[in-house]
Amino acid sequence: DHWEIRVGDITIHLKDVDEEIIRWVEEALRNGDDLEEIKRWVEEVLR
């Protein structure tokens, strides 16, 4: 699977990601969370 999350001008590409993570990231972006923080979290989860 390949996911693209778009929020404003930001697009995040994710592969082999659980839908729950996608929802979490979308929510975090909508809440204005720091992008670097989100990326770190996702990388942590995917490890």
Rank of each mutant, 00 (worst) to 15 (best):
E4S: 03
L29D: 00
D34V: 15
D34S: 13
E37I: 06
D9Q: 09
I12C: 01
I5T: 01
D33V: 15
I12N: 02
R40L: 08
R30A: 15
E43M: 09
G8Y: 03
E20P: 06
N31M: 04
K39Q: 11
L35Q: 07
D33N: 14
H2C: 10
E20Y: 14
R47H: 15
L14R: 03
V45L: 15
D18C: 03
I10P: 00
E19G: 07
T11C: 01
D1S: 13
E36D: 12
V25Q: 00
H13E: 12
R6G: 06
I22C: 02
L46A: 02
K15D: 09
G32R: 08
R30G: 05
I38C: 01
D33Y: 11
D33T: 14
E26C: 13
A28M: 12
E4Y: 08
E19Q: 10
E19L: 12
I22V: 11
E20L: 09
E43S: 04
V7M: 05
L14T: 02
W3A: 03
I21G: 02
K15A: 10
I12Q: 03
V42Y: 06
E44T: 03
E4C: 12
D18K: 09
H2M: 13
L14N: 01
V17G: 04
E44F: 02
R40I: 06
I5S: 00
I10A: 06
H2W: 15
E27M: 11
T11N: 04
E43F: 04
D9I: 13
V45A: 15
D9C: 00
I5P: 00
L14Q: 02
V17Y: 13
I22W: 11
E37A: 14
V25I: 10
I5V: 08
G8C: 00
A28H: 10
W3P: 01
R47F: 09
D33Q: 15
A28F: 05
R40M: 08
T11Q: 06
E37G: 10
E37H: 08
R30K: 11
I5Q: 02
W41T: 03
E27N: 14
T11P: 02
D33I: 15
V42K: 00
R6K: 13
V25D: 00
